[in-house]
Design a protein around this nucleic acid. Structure first.
Length: 156
DNA sequence: GCCAACGTTGGC
DNA sequence: GCCAACGTTGGC
């Protein structure tokens, strides 16, 4: 991964946490990510100020809903230590945390939701490496190149 | 609700 | 280390 990575996409199920929720709270610890690849992107790649496209998944019209910024350095996800939490991980310890996150700060909602169906029309320009339109499409945190960022936002 | 894709777990 | 079983994701 490039140490100069500046842009990301992060998925959220709007029923659980939507762009409107982020707008309301302002800044949110992006907890609950339990996939190693996604964790590595947050832990090893993200820096304060990086741009983040917020994507709504598993809903009536999946698509890009807004823009946010990375607002903290990576740090351990507190929910892994909490036995009451849905995200509790019995194998994680404070000495050796397994899951990391960053805080994400609201920047703005898009003027309209950019639906996945429309993004797919540009799959070729976005490239085969673009995780959202790649086969499978299950990764919840992944990098977006400057070129992809511009292209996606030009659809707004 | 269905189901394809895919990550993780655990027996061997 | 293999791989079948299982659980989860997420579009439709």
């Amino acid at each position: 991964m490039s140490p100069r990575q500046r842009h990301w996409m992060m998925k959220s199920e709007p029923d659980a946490f939507s762009i409107d929720d982020l707008a309301r709270v302002g800044t949110e610890p992006w907890n609950g990510v339990r996939n190693y690849q996604a964790r590595n992107f947050m832990r090893d790649g993200m820096r304060v100020g990086d741009g983040v496209l917020i994507y709504h998944s598993n809903c009536a019209i999946p698509g890009i809903a807004g823009i946010s910024r990375v607002a903290s350095e990576p740090y351990p996800d507190e929910t892994q230590f909490d036995p009451e939490s849905h995200y509790h991980d019995p194998k994680a310890t404070r000495e050796q945390p397994r899951w990391f996150l960053v805080d994400v700060a609201f920047e703005r909602k898009l003027r309209r939701l950019i639906p996945l169906s429309e993004i797919r029309e540009h799959a070729e320009e976005l490239g085969e490496g673009f995780a959202l339109t790649a086969r499978g499409n299950r990764l919840s945190v992944f990098p977006v190149t400057a070129h992809q960022w511009r292209l996606l936002l030009s659809l707004e």
